[in-house]
C-alpha cells in the first residue's frame, strides 16, 4: 500500500474574493508530526490554513485529509474528517461564557478531551469558566481557542499564529501545552511568525513565498539552513 500522509495538499490554488492568493501549494503532514509553515507576512500562510477549512471564496487542486477530498465538501462536514482549527483571530464567541465556548463544538470523534484534562492543561480557564468570552485577555482567549477544539477530538490541530501578540509567559505556557499534545501523538500544522517558538516544536518546515511553497526540510537540517531561512523570513 502506498503511504499517504494524514493531510496531503497538492497544487492548491486559492482565491479570496477576486484576488488569487495561493499559486500552487504542495504540502504533506504525516501522522504524529508537527509541521510548521514559515514565511514573511502576506505570502499566503494563513490563506493556506483557511483554504484547508473551507474559508476561501474558491479553491482548486487537492486537499486530502484521512483519504477524503476536502475541496467541494460542505464546510460543516470538513471538521468531521478530523480537523480542529484554531484561527488567527482566535474566534472566541464574546457573548458566550467560557464554559459555553468549551461545550460549543460538536464531538467529531471519541478522542475528545475531558473537561478535567482541559482544566489541567489550562488552569486559568477553570477560574474563569463563568466569565463571558469577550472579557478574556488575549492569552486566555488563545488558550480557550485551543482548549475548545481539543474538546471536539481532532486528529489534526491546525494552528494559525498561536503566539501572536502574547506575553512571553503566556507564550511559554502555550508552548508547554503544545509539546504535551505532541507527546500524546497529536498531529499539528502550525503557521508561526515567532521562529524561535516554531523551531522548538516542529519536526519539519515548509517555506512559503508569493503563494507557493518554495522549500521544505526536516528539523535536523535547520541548523545548516539557518542563514537561508533567516534571510527568507527576516529573523
Amino acid at each position: 500500500m502506498r503511504y499517504e500522509p494524514l493531510l496531503w495538499i497538492e497544487n492548491l490554488q486559492g482565491w479570496y474574493g477576486e484576488s488569487h492568493i495561493l499559486h500552487g501549494v504542495n504540502l504533506a503532514v504525516p501522522r504524529g508530526q508537527t509541521i510548521a509553515i514559515l514565511g514573511r507576512n502576506g505570502v499566503g500562510k494563513t490563506t493556506t490554513l483557511r483554504g484547508i477549512v473551507g474559508l476561501l471564496t474558491r479553491t482548486t487542486g487537492s486537499i486530502r485529509m484521512n483519504g477524503k477530498e476536502l475541496i467541494g465538501m460542505p464546510r460543516h462536514r470538513i471538521a468531521y474528517t478530523g480537523i480542529g482549527y484554531v484561527p488567527e483571530e482566535r474566534g472566541i464567541y464574546a457573548s458566550l461564557s467560557v464554559q459555553e465556548n468549551l461545550d460549543l463544538l460538536p464531538k467529531i470523534s471519541n478522542r475528545g478531551m475531558s473537561l478535567e484534562r482541559i482544566f489541567d492543561l489550562f488552569p486559568n480557564l477553570k477560574e474563569r469558566r463563568r466569565a463571558a468570552g469577550g472579557t478574556l485577555s488575549g492569552g486566555e482567549q488563545q488558550m480557550l481557542s485551543i482548549a475548545r477544539v481539543l474538546r471536539a477530538g481532532p486528529e489534526l490541530l491546525v494552528l494559525d499564529e498561536p503566539t501572536e501578540g502574547l506575553s512571553p509567559v503566556v507564550v511559554q505556557q502555550i508552548g508547554r501545552v503544545l509539546k504535551a499534545l505532541k507527546q500524546d501523538g497529536l498531529t499539528m500544522l502550525l503557521v508561526e511568525q515567532n521562529f524561535h517558538f516554531a523551531r522548538h516544536l516542529a519536526d519539519h518546515f515548509y517555506l512559503m513565498e508569493e503563494g507557493r511553497v518554495v522549500d521544505d526540510f526536516p528539523a535536523y537540517h535547520l541548523e545548516a539552513r539557518l542563514e537561508t531561512v533567516s534571510s527568507l523570513i527576516g529573523v
Partner: peptide, 25 residues
C-alpha cells in the same frame, strides 16, 4: 441550552461555527 449557545454563536460568527462542524444552513 446548547442549541441556544449555537444560535448565539452563529449570530456572532457563523462561518467559523460551520468550520467547527455545526450545520449552519
Amino acid at each position: 441550552t446548547s442549541l441556544g449557545a449555537k444560535l448565539r454563536a452563529a449570530t456572532e460568527n457563523s462561518r467559523l461555527l460551520e468550520v467547527f462542524g455545526v450545520n449552519v444552513p
